[in-house]
Design a protein around this nucleic acid. Structure first.
Length: 414
DNA sequence: TAGGCCATCTGGTCCT
DNA sequence: AGGACCAGATGGCCTA
């Protein structure tokens, strides 16, 4: 994945691969005879360069085990002068970077630095010379902070050893794997949720956020229906489902329910509006005498002639119809304070022990426990399938198989 | 090409 | 100390 590329890129930055590459050292591999000649020459060069006496140069050279030029570079670039191309292996890897590093091969920046700030060079070298600690080269590099400025002295923080670094890397990798696994589990749970909300489609998956919204709406609608004990109207149910969903998801839901998606427009507030003729007028009757008019269509509340494309406002209708608050209707704190009434008293329950085949056969829908006495309820389901409309969310007894179920599943799970 | 969605990495925080 | 959880960052993929 691209993440890996990103990771590699950034990890190499974090791990300082470029810089590490610049620290490759090619030590002098010459014979003893050559070495003495080269040493004299080098001492002369160093003496001239740093304006040191030859004795001092020898001392420094002994201390730095022949890498005097590199350390000279290092010391000159201490402070905020880390401008030399340590990252350029082609420079650092060349054999000349050993004791025989010719004076004229010094990078320009180094030479310029020496010319512009000779005192600095000398003082830095003296500082190193006087520092009799046995810090290794890596520790010496740690004298710089992230800006390259010298760090203040103090109790030295013990640098983690290689084992500790490796262990930290390993732990990070393990944590990443755990996090991956955790997210996979989360996604699996989300996938199972997708299968039990309306509009499950393998080809057109709902996004995570839409799945959660739809599930919440679905729970709300079912719970409200059960608590009301009345047969709700299709439109209110669908509009509850689509509450807060994006227009594409609303279309999908409407499509799954074989309704005209254009009738369920989502306005800029996430409000689901019905903008068409009420198709259920002829198909559905309403439970009570006061419910003979679809929610929102009681002439007094809305003037349908004045607002031909907003015959039905979800929120007001929902509240009127259910005498309850709809999800998120005017309250941004719905999730916490206005959780839908749950009916877990055996009538409606979430099934956690569904056998796999059950999920295949009924991905959605209210699921009834096959508790005694529930059959009648199911038979008197509040949701009834109109033969014409093939209203797809018929309640069904868990153990029963309805003919409509196949159609229903086909509608929701195309 | 911009925007949405997603997977992954990562560091911080909290908890056991 | 180590694991779970979380949120931010980032890049890839896809689509309108």
């Amino acid at each position: 994945m691209g993440t890996r590329c990103w990771h590699e890129c950034h990890s190499s930055k974090r791990e300082g691969k470029g810089r590490e590459g610049g620290r490759v050292r090619v030590r002098e591999g010459k014979g003893r005879a050559d070495h003495s000649i080269a040493e004299k020459r080098e001492c002369a060069e160093l003496s001239s360069f740093f304006q040191f006496g030859s004795l001092r140069v020898k001392k420094l050279k002994r201390r730095f085990r022949g890498d005097i030029w590199e350390h000279a570079r290092y010391m000159l670039t201490r402070g905020n002068m880390l401008t030399l191309p340590f990252e350029e292996p082609h420079i650092m890897c060349e054999p000349r970077f050993g004791a025989n590093y010719p004076r004229e091969s010094l990078p320009e920046s180094l030479e310029q630095e020496r010319q512009h700030n000779p005192d600095r060079s000398n003082s830095d070298m003296r500082e190193v010379e006087d520092d009799i600690s046995d810090r290794d080269e890596d520790e010496r590099e740690d004298d710089q902070d992230e800006n390259g400025l010298p760090k203040k002295r103090g109790p030295r923080k013990k640098k983690p050893g290689k084992e500790q670094v490796d262990r930290a890397k390993l732990r990070r990798q393990e944590a990443n794997a755990r996090e991956r696994s955790r997210m996979h589990g989360l996604n699996a749970a989300l996938e199972s949720l997708r299968k039990v909300v309306p509009c499950y489609s393998k080809t057109q998956k709902l996004s995570k956020i839409e799945t959660l919204r739809l599930a919440k709406n679905y729970i709300w609608a079912l719970s409200e229906t059960l608590s009301a004990g009345k047969r709700p109207d299709l439109l209110a149910f669908v509009q509850t489902l689509c509450k807060g969903l994006s227009q594409p998801t609303t279309n999908l839901v409407a499509g799954c329910l074989q309704l005209n998606a254009r009738n369920f427009l989502t306005d800029h507030n996430g409000e689901v509006m019905f903008s068409g003729r009420a198709p259920y007028d002829a198909m559905y009757s309403y439970p009570g005498s006061d419910m003979n008019t679809p929610p929102g269509h009681s002439g007094s509340s809305l003037d349908s002639s004045a607002k031909p494309f907003r015959h039905y406002s979800y929120s007001s209708a929902y509240e009127t119809y259910y005498e309850n608050q709809s999800p998120e209707s005017g309250s941004p704190h719905f999730d916490g304070q206005l959780s839908p009434p749950m009916n877990f008293n055996g009538i409606f329950s979430l099934k956690h022990d569904d056998p796999p085949e059950y999920g295949k056969n009924s991905h959605y829908g209210m699921r009834y426990c096959s508790a005694p006495g529930r059959t009648a309820l199911a038979h008197n389901s509040m949701y009834r399938v109109s033969p014409e409309a093939r209203f797809p969310y018929d309640l069904h007894v868990r153990s029963q198989s309805f003919q409509a179920q196949g159609e229903v599943n086909g509608s929701f799970h195309n």
